[in-house]
Amino acid sequence: MGSIRLTTLPTDLDILRHMNNGRYLSLFDLGRWDLLIRTGLFDAMKQRGWYAVVSSETVTFRKSLELWQRFDVESRFIGHDEKALFTEHRAVVDGEVYARVLVRARMLRRSGGTVPHDELFAALGQPEGVPDVEGWIHDWASASALPPTKAPAPSVWH
């Protein structure tokens, strides 16, 4: 798990003077980078020509972050399925969750293709103490997925 301390800045605000909903995802990216660096994955990725892409994410808001409010972005790896890695990020004030995002990301090669998990874990070691991904997370990933890049995905409203 990783944690970074941030402050809500004037450039983070929307017209209602609280943290803009789109800003959370950018700030949670900082937590993801912190986690990549803390775990050594960032160095392994650079050495091997790998990069991560987010394939889906869902954010849930509970309370608003106000101007100059200090908060922590807490980040943790929560598991994987056959294709992707899952992380969770939280905006936390004094131990209380204000917002949470669930992220599904894939590890790709700059030369093309996906990095299989066995290769990823051989480079880093299999993380210990990570519980099985909860069933609802698999349901969420399936329900929010778009067709693969080589399959048609017409924009048709029903």
Rank of each mutant, 00 (worst) to 15 (best):
Lys63Thr: 00
Val130Tyr: 13
Ser111Cys: 00
Val92Ile: 11
Tyr24Cys: 02
Ala141Phe: 13
Ala84Phe: 09
Arg38Glu: 13
Arg38Gln: 14
Leu30Met: 10
Val54Asp: 08
Thr149Ser: 08
Leu41His: 13
Val59Gln: 07
Val130Ser: 04
His18Leu: 00
Pro116Met: 01
Ala122Cys: 03
Thr114Val: 15
Lys46Asp: 04
Ala122Ile: 05
Pro147Ser: 11
Thr149Arg: 14
Thr114His: 14
Asn20Phe: 01
Asp118Gly: 07
Lys46Phe: 03
Arg70Pro: 05
Pro116Arg: 06
Arg70Ser: 05
Asp43Met: 11
Tyr24Met: 02
Arg110Asp: 00
Ser75His: 01
Ala84Ser: 15
Pro127Leu: 04
Gly79Ser: 09
Asp132Glu: 13
Pro127Trp: 07
Trp140Asp: 01
Ala123Trp: 04
Arg62Asn: 01
Glu74Val: 12
Val93Thr: 08
Gly40Met: 11
Val73Glu: 09
Ile15Trp: 05
Glu96Ile: 10
Ser56Arg: 15
Trp68Gln: 09
Glu74Asn: 12
Ala84Pro: 06
Tyr51Glu: 01
Arg62Glu: 00
Phe71Cys: 00
Glu74Phe: 01
Thr60Asn: 04
Ser26Phe: 02
Val115Tyr: 13
Val103Met: 09
Asp81Trp: 14
Ile137Leu: 03
Arg109Ile: 00
Gly49Asn: 07
Arg38Gly: 11
Pro131Tyr: 02
Leu35Ala: 08
Leu85Asn: 09
Gly40Ala: 14
His80Ser: 12
Arg32Gly: 05
Ser26Ile: 10
Gly49Gln: 06
Thr39Ala: 08
His89Trp: 02
Glu82Thr: 15
Glu88Asp: 06
Glu82Cys: 08
Ser142His: 14
Trp140Cys: 03
Thr58Leu: 05
